[in-house]
Design a protein around this nucleic acid. Sequence first.
RNA 1: GCGCGAUUAGCUCAGUGGUAGAGCAUUACCUUGACAUGGUAGGGGCCACAGGUUCGAACCCUGUAUCGCGCACCA
Length: 994
Amino acid sequence: MPELDKTYTAAEVEARWYQQWLDDKAFVADPARVSEKRPAYSIVIPPPNVTGILTLGHVLNNTIQDILCRRARMLGKEVLWLPGTDHAGIATQNVVEKTLKKQGGIKHRDDLGREKLVEKIWEWKEKHGGIIIQQLKKLGASCDWSRERFTMDEDYSCCVQKVFVDLYKKGLIYRGKRMVNWCPSSLTALSDEEVVMKTQKGLLYHFKVEVVEQPGTWLEIATTRPETIPGDMAIAVNPKDERYKHLIGKHARRPLPLENQAALPIIGDEHVDYEFGTGVLKVTPAHDKADYEILLRYRAAVMAASSELVDKYSQGPIDIMLPNGVMNNLAGKDLAGIERFEARKIAIALLTEMGAMVKEEPHQNNVGYSERADVPIEHRLSEQWFLKYPSVEAARECVAGRAGVSPAEAGIMPGSSEASGKMPDAAGGTPALPQMRFFPDRWAKVYDHWMGNLQDWCISRQLWWGHRVPVWYLPHNPDGLTEEQRRVAEIIKNKSDLRYSFITGRGFAYCDIEPPTGGNWLQDPDVLDTWFSSWLWPFATMGWPNKTADLKAFYPTTDLVTGPDIIFFWVARMIMAGYEWMGEMPFKNVYFTGIIRDKQGRKMSKSLGNSPDPLELIEKFGADALRFGIMRSAPLGADIAFDDKNVELGRNFCTKLWNAARFRQMQSSSGVSPETSSTGIPPVATEAEINPALLTSDDKWILFRLNTAINEVTSALEEYRFSDATATLYRFFWSEYCDWYVEASKAVLQGSAGVSPVNSDGTGETPALPSRKANTLAVMDFVLGHTLRLFHPFLPFITEELWHGMGFNADMPENQGGKSIMFAPWPKPFSEDELAHFGILPEDEKTANDKYETVNLGRGLKSTFNITKRVRFVIKPKQELPAHEIEVLRILLNADPLDVDASYAAKKGTPVVLTPLGELFLPLEGLIDVEAERARVTKELNKASDELGKVRGKLADENFISKVPQKVLDEHKQREADWAAQLAKLKTMLETLG
RNA sequence: GCGCGAUUAGCUCAGUGGUAGAGCAUUACCUUGACAUGGUAGGGGCCACAGGUUCGAACCCUGUAUCGCGCACCA
């Protein structure tokens, strides 16, 4: 390998390795390789919108998945990360329609017609779809691209229809005329989940109506929507309201439309809140859910009382609006053809003119907005398809940590007599049901609450792009039943085929993928909610309904990584679908990411223009840098405040890693190491190549720290604490390896005559220089080889480059690191045996720590006196210091020379610090500002005195010493002794200063 | 309104009862043979507030405030 450049150039390396991985089919999963020894690990990607582009949210989400997958590979698992995209009905159709309109081809989609438009959307999809897939590759995502799926693929569409038919036959899908959420912009029904409530600062308008039977009596009504007055069908008051109850049964005249001021019944309904407004409610059943229910209740009551009135009230609600939010003729001539918000102004003007307007007051309320189109939705009575959710119980029960249920409790087998009581002991032997875990677990409560309050799901959309409802109708024949209709009627009567049914207003219906042969069966025009296809994602992507090898090996999947914003849209529904059609949960763990925000804590949004383009970041800093930066700032369960600085930090980190490798490489090129292989660089060192007898305290220390890092990173990843893992890696590599170990190792690597004993009592046991150098290099290789592996899931590109560049792959088996670091074994912490082999004891850590502490103190001393040059230090050691330790101290202190003198008698005024190794002097005759030194020592003395006072205070407290545990007591006593000694020394120092 | 979460250095966050931490930012100094995308040293905190438990509270309990999220909703 040629000598490494001074800086790392990400772009070239990333492109090269990604292609190599693809060529090697490194991401391709093979169910045949799954065995007990090689367990499966699988993730299905949350399918991004096929027309979408990569956002930071995707970066976060997919980096996490990639980290999990790459680590699983290193653990020797057979990994499937299944990618794909979503057809995203409304969004995609909107994008294409808009583009076509811009291009001037059409004014409305009807100009093109259904078939043509769908064709155009497919064209668009082929051309622009999947940009995001290419972008994911830039990020380093190790998806099995050979299995890429799209929710509108033929096979997938089949699954969607099959599922619809199945639910239809089970009686869980029905068609009905109901109040739904209607988007006047997209012209379709929406599910409750697609409506977001927004707080609005609006006005509450008060107007009055006169009671017909009591002229002169006026009722004041408060409303936020005066434009809907023409749709009013009643005036409602609370039957317990003393102010109004005597008016129930009378009538009041509706002010609008002017040409049709109908007398509306004044009715009683418990729903009316007397606290709100005036306590009088206008009832607009066609445009308000609650009002619609009031009408239904009223109608039922009226009909029960008198069948004569049935006709009068059996008419439907008065719908005064067109689907696009423009008022229709029923709104009256003044409002007809006017857009709803414009109509409001006119209605107010009309009321004012006729003297009915009383006042308007500021009012804050919540208005439902269409999530996609970002316009206020309308409540609208329309015929739609609804689904009663299947497998609700199982889906609800399987999530551990639900409200009021501990994970262990939730795991009790059903049917156990103790199920609702106390849980058995852990040793009780009751095997727990498989449990799904949420990270962070608080989302389990949110999930449980939603699952406990399920509303039927409106699954039909008035769109053209999507899976068309597989229901077929036989047109009504007014001249009596045809032969075909008679045949179908018979089937329905006998319930011999559940695919047939009768739907009011539609006639005979048949639900299946294909229509029945014969007859003019027409397909339902609606398509299905996109989520009605994505809820099948974990198994429909793996070949369901066939019992494929993929399903057998990889279902249930292991982890799901997604945002909490789609917990109901997607996660909950997938769980239900998993139980309904696979009989099993679809994934074992769900990791909910945070939401990416900008520095000011605002959500990323197009309109704010505060969302950086990840691809630009990758170009500027590298994919590894972006990954590391974003993972470092993404703690479990918290939102992410995104700042380019994080990515820059990632880039800097990669540079550091690169240069540390470069340093190592430069050492071996000097050729001093006899153990160096013929290639010039040894392969990753194994334990066997490290000679424990030659280990310095620094070597032992870094091995010890490595061991700690392995433990920390491993457990952090097991608990999905990614930012903790990166923090550990950062600390270990930068602070411990580079700042201390590499610097200390220079004592061995760069020591000229270096290690010759400087101390008077020279121990003389310094080993021959070359073998010691070789040993230090072996330790470096061992640490670097492990470090690269620990980093690989986070920094796949640079670690692969260095793994090969450093030759660490050389002696590894082909499929375990020889070809790619991706399959190198995940580092394991040292066993007891290994620790014994290296001769690493806990006190070795202290030896090195004491040394580094001494260095810190010495540097501080230099800094206090503004010494920037290399100067002489003298140490008066507490006990003998081996030559190596002295040399390390010398180098780290940048001392020239470092004299060791056990009987050193410093001149008056010589600055000195008390270190764990003894007194360290900075003899600078004549250069010292005695006043400054006195000030410094006094400050330390005060500190020591304070601390001593605190500890003594505690130890003097009878309460304290009698109640505190022995361990804490000992600690305090030790602390007292330490501070007392420190204080005494400092006093002496101060006296010495004169 | 109900529920959940947060509140620790200028910023982003660790810290599960025993001497308050990290990174960034900032200040000073240093281009020394891996790295200036770097090194060394420093400054900076009544741990949101008020009570309580305890020998001892950032940490446990109660309440309050502010912010965020979810659910419900009064027109």
